[in-house]
Computed example of a mutant assay.
Amino acid sequence: MPTKSDRNTLRERALKALAAMPEGENQRINGGIQADADNPELGEEFFAKAKRMRGPQKAPTKKLVSLRLDPEVIERFRAMGPGWQARMNDALRKAAGL
């Protein structure tokens, strides 16, 4: 993930490139965007609904397993809200004496 310094550097480079753009080039680009019905420009509404997602872990610390549990157990943990899987993991660790 880029650091704040990296992001600032990239922002500065983008602003310099924008300033160096020939007269009318930005309008030509925007006109092309508006004319392409298959690839519309994404507006504020799209980004307001967008969710940020994590990428793959560099060194996974957990293992994915398939486990059959009683529905009541799953419902109880889910009813506690977000983080239910981590709480379930903690309960299993405690039960295993870890």
Rank of each mutant, 00 (worst) to 15 (best):
T3M: 07
K4E: 10
K4W: 06
K4V: 07
R7Q: 12
R7P: 00
N8E: 12
L10D: 05
R11C: 02
R11Q: 03
A14W: 08
L15N: 08
L15A: 08
A17Q: 12
A19F: 02
M21L: 11
P22L: 01
E23S: 07
E23H: 09
G24F: 00
E25T: 02
N26Y: 11
R28E: 08
R28I: 05
R28Y: 01
N30Y: 11
G31A: 05
I33M: 10
Q34N: 11
Q34P: 07
D36R: 05
A37Q: 08
D38T: 14
E41V: 13
G43I: 09
F46P: 00
K49P: 08
K51V: 12
R52C: 11
M53P: 08
M53E: 14
P56C: 06
P56W: 08
Q57H: 09
Q57W: 06
A59C: 13
A59F: 14
K62N: 15
S66G: 12
L67F: 14
L67C: 10
R68N: 13
R68G: 10
L69N: 00
P71D: 13
E72C: 01
I74D: 04
I74P: 00
E75C: 01
E75Q: 11
R76Q: 07
R76I: 03
A79P: 00
A79Q: 10
M80G: 15
M80W: 13
M80F: 09
G81P: 03
P82S: 15
G83L: 05
W84E: 00
Q85I: 04
Q85N: 14
R87G: 00
M88E: 01
D90E: 15
L92M: 15
R93V: 07
K94F: 04
A95L: 12
A95T: 05
A96K: 00
